[in-house]
Design a protein around this nucleic acid. Structure first.
Lengths: 376, 376
DNA sequence: TTGAAAGCGCTAACAA
DNA sequence: TTGTTAGCGCTTTCAA
């Protein structure tokens, strides 16, 4: 090292020249305000700890230089990043962001009749959770890092003070590893009996309340259930709620025909059509809204009316359900609240690392819409 | 400072005891593998630069300790954070994430008939952009930080290597300030004539192609336009496209009645009803999908059929449009691609800070659905 | 109230 | 190939 190397020592001198183009640092502010870097730090973090005059000078310098504190430097010194991570499940169609295809003036025209390019309902759900989490993080002065699950989740573990992970986006193993290093909260995982904090939604009670409405209020006892995939935990808990409602009203659960779909609209339409061909139930309870949309298709195709001939219910509260014809009665999940609660759980865990694992269950809400008749 | 202070010097000794509970660092790995911290760093960053034997030992130690590099430390040394920021517009209803309302066993039942609790279509749009951005960031080994616009955007400027900002989420002033410190790309801002990079979508051409289909292919010359708010830039460019299509087919644009809505479904239904009461057009071109949904409501209420009596078109490609009855012909925005392109623009800007401002316009796609009859 | 200086965990010269 | 060491920009004792 020869001469003009701008080592830390030299930066403090009033003569130090700031490298042009580089972002201003505390040293630059300190120089400009003729104080030490410690004072700059104090003026920023704890304005009361410096005299008004000094504070004024520092603020002035900060403004003139356009100084913004370096988050990494702060994080290193603080030993906390001030950021939380949210790990979303990945979908299979993540490739199309790659195609830049700049405009050459032509506009592609696609015949989408028959709905060949479906859009899932799931993204909206995650988006809402994300917003809830972001807002809550912001309230705590923290930022939110998002990642789409690619098994590991490892890559962002070193970037955050805590990680909220959606059920089934990481292997249990990977979760255990990460949880050993940083606080983790499991989202929407009702099976979360492990020693890890979790926040989920009361699927079972939601379905129970919905079906109790159909059976109790509407007096319908001839039901069918359009289920999700056989291995879906979500479907399982919803079905539990269904069973409870039936039991509460002394409806023999064996009288309820159950058919499995895949949570998708198209498959649901097929399954519902078969069910109706066999014999139309008075009410068709669907495991999710997408399935209910499919059921609507099948019922319409069969020349029957909703809710006059068949009452239909969904689950989730997706947008398309509200816009369907008729709008679908459903159970809305508290998506924003879920995201917010996840961040709060992380904060709590950081505040008390030794507390027993917390498992929070958020309440859902039944939304009555036109696919059910008004209470009799 | 007295004795056992684990200063940096001492950490390197083989006897250094790691503070329990704290995340392991390069020093811990170095101790365990009996190498220097530089070697650990090399083994991690550039495995080829160490001998296989050393690499093996280091990897072993890393695995045993569960070591994950500290992103802040890396960022500080590298002078880059390895993260990009995405600033989303905030909605007005951001407060409900606060209500935790833990389950007390009750489930609220709300009568939502008449769709009193609408969900906007916008979130899906942003969610898709977000995913596109996340995937692209991940491809580049970077993380994605999201923030919901609160005017400043200042808070995350120090956390990222570049910031993608949606139009109208920050004041021009704030953008200029941030842009002075870190690369910024404006999203979906077709007015972006400033010296800042931008990526937007070809709204005008999309609308033009859509209307050319209606006029040219379907031979409809009796149109009405259901516009958005009078001050909406999005609406303005779409209307430009409309005008171009009309001109191309020699339809007098004064013959096209224009009514302003607010991009929302309810208002659109009112406006469309008035329009129809006056005189039903053969085709109703709507400024966005939500408006088209409202138009559908009004047309149905008027006892008319779509597309037999009136052809309806939307814009955006939201999910609900595909699920409407009938499904709505629309222009789909390349949302994922938009997010991906934003990140790529940021990378390009970082690679060459002095290049002239880039303005990229992505092509859209027309989706023909049942609200338009098949080409004659 | 202010300043000096150590140290947060890592990278990258430079030396060996 | 490996080790030593000087920072990266900030916070925080400790002294003055």
């Amino acid at each position: 090292m020869t001469t003009a190397s701008p080592g830390r020592r030299e930066r403090g001198t009033t003569m130090a020249k700031r490298k042009v183009g580089a972002a201003p640092t505390v040293y630059d502010v300190a120089d400009a305000a003729a104080v030490s870097i410690a004072t700059v730090s104090r003026a920023v973090r704890n304005p009361e700890s410096v005299t008004p005059a000094t504070r004024e000078r520092v603020e002035q310098a900060i403004h003139e230089l356009g100084y913004v504190p370096s988050a990494p430097a702060r994080a290193l010194a603080d030993r906390r990043t001030g950021a939380y991570g949210l790990l979303l499940p990945g979908f299979d169609d993540l490739e199309d962001a790659a195609a830049p295809a700049p405009s050459d003036g032509s506009v592609r025209i696609t015949d989408d009749r028959g709905n060949r390019s479906p859009i899932g309902g799931a993204p909206l759900y995650y988006d809402e959770v994300l917003r809830g989490a972001e807002v809550e993080a912001w309230r705590h002065g923290a930022a939110l890092l998002v990642a789409v699950g690619r098994g590991q989740g490892h890559d962002i573990a070193g970037r955050v003070d805590g990680l909220a992970v959606f059920a089934r986006t990481m292997t249990d193993d990977a979760i255990a590893r990460v949880a050993g290093r940083t606080p983790v909260v499991l989202l929407a995982d009702e099976q979360a009996a492990r020693g890890i904090d979790s926040v989920s939604v009361d699927n079972a009670r939601g379905m129970r309340a919905l079906v109790e409405h159909v059976v109790g209020e509407l007096g319908i006892r001839d039901l069918a259930y359009l289920a999700g995939p056989k291995d879906s935990p979500d479907d399982a808990v919803r079905r539990t709620g269904l069973g409870q409602a039936l039991a509460a009203h002394k409806v023999d659960s064996r009288s309820v025909r159950v058919r499995h779909g895949d949570f998708g609209r198209a498959r649901a339409a097929q399954v519902a059509a078969e069910l109706i061909a066999e014999r139309a139930p008075r009410a068709l309870v669907c495991a999710n809204d997408q399935s209910a949309l499919g059921a609507l298709d099948a019922i319409r195709a069969a020349g029957l009316r909703v809710p006059d001939d068949i009452v239909v219910t969904g689950f989730d509260g997706i947008e398309a359900g509200a816009y369907a014809t008729p709008p679908i009665t459903t159970v809305r999940q508290p998506m924003r609240a879920l995201g917010g609660a996840a961040i709060r759980a992380l904060e709590a865990r950081i505040a008390d690392p030794t507390a027993a694992p917390q498992h929070l269950t958020l309440p859902v809400e039944v939304l009555l819409r036109e696919s059910c008749p008004p209470a009799l």
